[in-house]
Design a protein around this nucleic acid. Structure first.
Lengths: 118, 118
DNA sequence: CCCTTAGTTCAAAATTCGTTGAACAATTGT
DNA sequence: ACAATTGTTCAACGAATTTTGAACTAAGGG
């Protein structure tokens, strides 16, 4: 069972930029990059919004070709489509992630644990 | 006489990405990059939209910190803010421009001349 | 001074976007 | 079979974005 993904050629630059131009989605991508190699499921991101809201944002990322979503049982494993993005737009993902990593204005995924400690 | 520009520190990554994630604005940036060093005035971009519409998009680019606008007499000279963008988000502008250069889906600035020749 | 050129501002209309809750589907565990 | 877990879909709503035309400002040329 696999969800609709664009092919590498169908990935559109303006669309990728627009999709990354949302703080929640950029935070998702930043977190995916920090755990690259480890597929994450949606509930990992609950710090960033409600379940419904994440479903919306993760669909946007998938439809734009930024992430790949694999259905495994009842959960979706999400990874960055780094291979296709690098082939299509060399250097773009790296520079976006590097800039996102030190952006204190972006919402953080570990935020609730930090608050709990305070 | 100078228009309001954000300082380098005020330039926000999500905002820059969102602003670049519009085909018209990306086409503007691509054209600015192709003529880098040469300041362009707004009417150079009339292929991409109406005067009013360009005023809107160029304001967005300026407010996001992507371009710098200098008022000279009755016209505005527009340049890329490459120095600040490179300092803030290293490699980002270059990869975006490189990808935009070979994107046939973007509207082109010379389009009306090409049609006139046909 | 009048006219043109260059561009902005404003309000309105059309569209798209982000967020929510309620209901739903599918898988897994007991 | 039942219940819990994971996540989607749908309709709704407010907010933001894009586009347009009409009116406007400001500088320059004749």
């Amino acid at each position: 069972m696999t969800l609709p993904h664009p092919t590498a050629e169908q990935i559109s630059l303006p669309n990728v930029l627009a999709v990354l131009g949302d703080p929640t989605r950029l935070a998702i991508v930043r977190y995916l990059a920090s755990k690259e190699g480890v597929p994450l499921n949606c509930s990992q991101f609950l710090d960033l919004g409600s379940k419904t809201n994440l479903s919306y944002h993760l669909a946007k990322l998938r439809e734009a070709g930024v992430t790949r979503t694999e259905v495994v049982g009842t959960s979706r494993l999400i990874t960055l489509r780094r291979d296709d993005l690098d082939a299509r737009f060399p250097g773009l993902l790296d520079s976006v992630i590097a800039a996102a990593v030190d952006d204190p204005a972006l919402p953080a995924v570990g935020a609730s644990e930090i608050e709990a400690r305070a």
